[in-house]
């Protein structure tokens, strides 16, 4: 902390010096060193992210599959095909439904949990750990557990039967399969969101609460007018990550409903459909690439709009 102004001053001096003579050897060396340091990351990023993304963009205009290879250019054909493909439309609707259901729920629950666990409670570190546990568990393991819990003869139904209910077959019911998986996902990710909120909560200066208290604000008013606005950045992060994560949901569907989109495609999501087309036997890598770009565009637009909304609120 203390060194910061000094470093800044030195940097400014160096920059001024360098600006005076652009081909100064010191500056060149500095630039070279800088690039050398980021080179490993850049190289990995180029090879494993940028390269495949560019290649996928090219593929999305081709009739291409893994076993037959390149079979001709189709222009925007793959993109037009999406509009006429009922399974794609179903996957899109399911994904949107999933995002709208999961993101607000998990954000709200995480906030409540964080506020409660930020209070002086007995054993709160135990609860913090317990709530965070699902988040550090592999989603595959969690999906396997819930596959057992939610099955026709599973734990949940046994409990419900003991209470005298006639429970449905959760994962085989077209209306319940997706909400069941949504509930599992909320349970899994809420811990991560809670930790983010907890960290943000501890950054709120206590003076604000003291001032609010002096002004006669009730605890609820303090929560609503001090805590929530102060958490804006954390909320932006939580919601954005929630949306991106939910748009890309895959493993839960892949494992809990056979990877086939569940009963009547009720758990078919965009990622799962991309997978089916690319690797899952549908032999349509080009189409899969096109859907990937559609998904990318959707997430991009949503995040941009959301950023703008948050900025406007801040202004």
């Amino acid at each position: 902390m203390e060194g910061r102004p000094a470093t800044g001053a030195r940097l400014r001096a160096q920059r001024a010096y360098a600006a005076a003579s652009p081909w100064n050897a010191d500056r060149l060396q500095e630039t070279a060193t800088g690039y050398l340091f980021v080179l490993p990351v850049l190289a990995v990023y180029a090879v494993f992210t940028v390269g495949p993304a560019v290649w996928a963009a090219i593929l999305s205009f081709q009739d291409y599959n893994l076993i037959g290879g390149f079979r001709g250019w189709v222009g925007a054909g793959n993109y037009v095909r999406m509009l006429r493909d009922p399974v794609f439309v179903k996957a899109l609707l399911n994904t949107v439904y999933y995002v709208l259901g999961v993101v607000p729920t998990q954000t709200f629950i995480a906030l409540v949990m964080a506020v409660v666990l930020n209070m002086e409670l007995r054993g709160r570190s135990v609860f913090r750990t317990l709530y965070y546990l699902p988040s550090v568990t592999s989603s595959v393991v969690i999906s396997l557990l819930f596959l057992q819990i939610l099955s026709e003869q599973g734990l949940l139904n046994a409990a419900l039967r003991a209470l005298g209910f006639h429970p449905p077959n959760w994962l085989q019911n077209t209306a319940l399969a997706l909400p069941s998986i949504m509930a599992v996902n909320v349970w899994t990710t809420v811990g991560t969101m809670m930790i983010l909120y907890l960290a943000a909560l501890q950054n709120i200066p206590t003076e604000l609460y003291e001032a609010a208290e002096i002004d006669g604000a009730s605890p609820w008013q303090q929560l609503w007018h001090v805590t929530v606005p102060q958490l804006r950045n954390a909320t932006f992060f939580v919601v954005t990550n929630g949306i991106i994560g939910c748009f890309q949901v895959f493993d839960q569907m892949f494992i809990m409903t056979d990877g086939n989109g569940g009963p009547l495609n009720s758990t078919m999501t965009l990622m799962l459909y991309i997978y089916k087309n690319a690797f899952g036997g549908y032999n349509a890598m080009g189409y899969a690439a096109a859907i990937s770009f559609a998904l990318f565009a959707m997430i991009l637009v949503i995040v941009i709009v959301q950023r703008r909304l948050f900025r406007e609120e801040a202004a």
């Binding site: 077209t174 086939n260 989109g261 009963p263 009547l264 089916k276 032999n283």
Partner: peptide
């Protein structure tokens, strides 16, 4: 052709017969 696509399509039809 597209065996897996066909199998999935017909199985969805059979599911709708069974479930709905």
């Amino acid at each position: 052709p597209n065996g897996q696509t066909v199998i999935d399509a017909v199985n969805k039809a059979l599911q709708s017969i069974y479930l709905q």
